[in-house]
Design a protein around this nucleic acid. Structure first.
Lengths: 203, 203
DNA sequence: TACATTCTTCAACAGATGTTCTAAAATTGG
DNA sequence: CCAATTTTAGAACATCTGTTGAAGAATGTA
């Protein structure tokens, strides 16, 4: 019926979100994307709309490839181990120098929070998905008696999410794996606390 | 000897760091600064150097006015109360809509971490000052027996700093004061020796 | 082969950016 | 008042930005 696309959208979007991930939204120009994808800007506009829409598409692809896939992969683990594994996978990914620093979604919170309310709502939703993943794990753990029933689940989930956000900021300063693990340890120890005696509050 | 300045540097720098704080480094143009300070760009270049140097000057002024002053004001409190007060002041400031969102230094971690190593080292130093403030407080607390001697001071300090970083990301999404307090509560509970006091842990 | 339709290439646009140049203005010491 | 020196105001600069227009290229159908 007409001339076909010369590129595969999935591949291009993957390249695009890596570019945004590395340099940020504003600092990545359409010409940068043209150079890195090999697709002309006019074709990008034709296929995805304007820069903002392309960024939204890239964000969604990033969420699927890097965040939701991890949550799905871990969701059948025992609840406490599930949180442990999630945190440790995030820490490992953050310490991996072969990937851009931090997380595209969280980077975007900082960058687009000023001004673009639609974008802010979107990334808030993404982060809400992760917080829910943690909250569900905590509820499972409480139901199974794997954590103290006195732990306030909502607060602890909120605390974990905040720690994860903080790790992503810390990762921008390119610390070592050990430093990130140290940063995560105190919150993880909360899961091990028991209410009974007043003796041991160890890591 | 020569024509005198028509502006007071301190005042201008204060206006400048507020502008960078609100919109970020890249998104604040020299013309924006000209409009907000009432000082022509040529005068800004003459007085401060280029945009990057002006930003460094602004960062330093921000640190003194908003961070170091707080640490100095609290440093004579009892150690656990000192940490409590610091965290709660940060939370209150973050929930205050009359000031720009987040913290200029932490915003800069996210923005300038890519590329500008000099800037990254500088903001890493700023954050190191805060982490040291917390670490010293924890050491004081341990020495006084105000916290369990088994708490790993370095890890907990690192955990607190990470939580603080995370709070500043969360604040960009403009949650309420209560949500920020919930986010901080689990880490604060680590200080109360053992675990969540079984009774009063709800919001 | 011819048409209709979609894609690609490349140039162009209008506006914004950091920075600098020119010339005028304001001050102090002689 | 003159000369020296610094600050200003405003235009000018080259470059980069997101986006679009015009013309040609590739396809399926008739």
């Amino acid at each position: 019926m007409a001339r076909p696309r010369e590129f595969q959208e999935d591949e291009i979007v993957k390249t695009v979100f890596r570019a945004f991930w590395r340099r940020g939204y504003a600092a990545t120009s359409m010409r940068d994307l043209e150079a890195e994808t090999g697709v002309g800007t006019a074709s990008l506009y034709n296929a995805f709309g304007d820069k903002r829409a392309l960024f939204r598409t890239a964000l969604e692809a990033y969420m699927d490839a890097h965040i939701r896939s991890r949550m799905r992969r871990l969701e059948r683990m025992a609840p406490v181990a599930r949180i442990d594994a999630f945190v440790h996978e995030v820490v490992s990914a953050l310490a991996d120098d072969s990937e851009p620093a931090g997380c595209l979604v969280i980077n975007s919170v900082m960058e687009s929070a000023a001004g673009d309310r639609g974008m802010r709502d979107y990334v808030a939703g993404c982060i809400g998905e992760v917080e829910e993943f943690i909250r569900v794990a905590l509820e499972d753990a409480a139901a199974q008696g794997a954590i103290s029933p006195d732990l306030p689940v909502r607060d602890v989930a909120c605390g974990f999410m905040t720690m994860l956000l903080g790790l992503h900021v810390a990762a921008k300063l390119r610390p070592g794996l050990c430093a990130l693990e140290s940063a995560a340890r105190p919150m993880l120890s909360v899961l091990r606390h028991r209410t009974f005696p007043a003796g041991r509050a160890k890591s």
